[in-house]
Design a binder for these strands. Structure first.
Lengths: 138, 138
DNA sequence: ATTTTTAGTTAGCAAATACTAACTACATTT
DNA sequence: AAATGTAGTTAGTATTTGCTAACTAAAAAT
């Protein structure tokens, strides 16, 4: 019987490999690792402005500004001027930019398929019930 | 009741956040995202030579050579000349370089702790049994 | 034994990634 | 109303990250 840490580590590898594989499928050679990181954080932070994004990434505002300019030029990102504060603009992902998140969804779907093939209906229900408790609690 | 894909997505976030948090704890500001990627792949590929690493990362050999030179200079990596082929050298991680992998272990430990706090002993056993089946099968 | 292939390197270049300092325009505080 | 603070930008610079072309030395194939 394996212990919990080994299981987590295995799960981490499973997810990591699926993400790697999905990246190859989605053919995003035009983006660097760093640029993907920006796009993922714009998604997670839900349309941040440049100041918020810079703080999250621990980078200076000019650095983030230049990086975002390039992502706008390549049509992954666009700006929406804030109503509340005319100095500020929110960063949004274009359909092309959202592709990166769809890539993550794709990876998750692949793993879900693998799991379905390996477990009985009862085991699946048990897994869902227990992990729901882990994810929702507190 | 949630479905499996949502669970996987939640799990992915849980792992991602733990890794992010661990990175902050381990204070690896001297390394860029890309450099960490090199180090992780040297670990995963188990002491590859430059040609193998370049193929895995889809980068040219001169690019990888220059990057590795910098990681050697910063004492994250060292080379070991191959016995079998005198042209070739295997890349190894120094203790400092292995810190990145210890960081992953730390993240996994944190998640294991979280799970232990949220589940009863029976639920933990059930989770381990089912995930062992997922990870070991075929 | 000679040719071809392979591992790694060197040089020269371009783009991406990061910084600080200094600035404009708007918002907030006093 | 004036002073201070904040969001974003611009300019200038250094480092990192990536490439191709051309090379050396060793290994493999002919």
């Amino acid at each position: 019987m394996k212990n919990l840490i080994e299981i987590i580590s295995g799960l981490s590898n499973l997810l990591g490999n699926a993400e790697e594989h999905a990246k190859e499928q989605f053919n995003l050679q035009s983006l660097t690792l760093t640029q993907m990181h920006y796009i993922e954080n714009i998604h997670v932070l839900n349309n941040p402005n440049i100041t918020e994004l810079a703080a999250t990434l621990n980078l200076s505002k000019p650095t983030v500004k230049v990086a975002i300019d390039k992502l706008i030029e390549k049509a992954y990102v666009f700006k929406v001027q804030s109503d509340a504060d005319r100095r500020s603009a929110h960063l949004h992902l274009t359909e092309k930019g959202k592709l990166i998140n769809q890539m993550h969804d794709f990876a998750h779907k692949q793993i879900a398929e693998q799991i379905k093939h390996k477990l009985t209906a009862e085991e699946q229900q048990s897994l869902i019930a227990v992990l729901t408790k882990v994810l929702l609690e507190k």
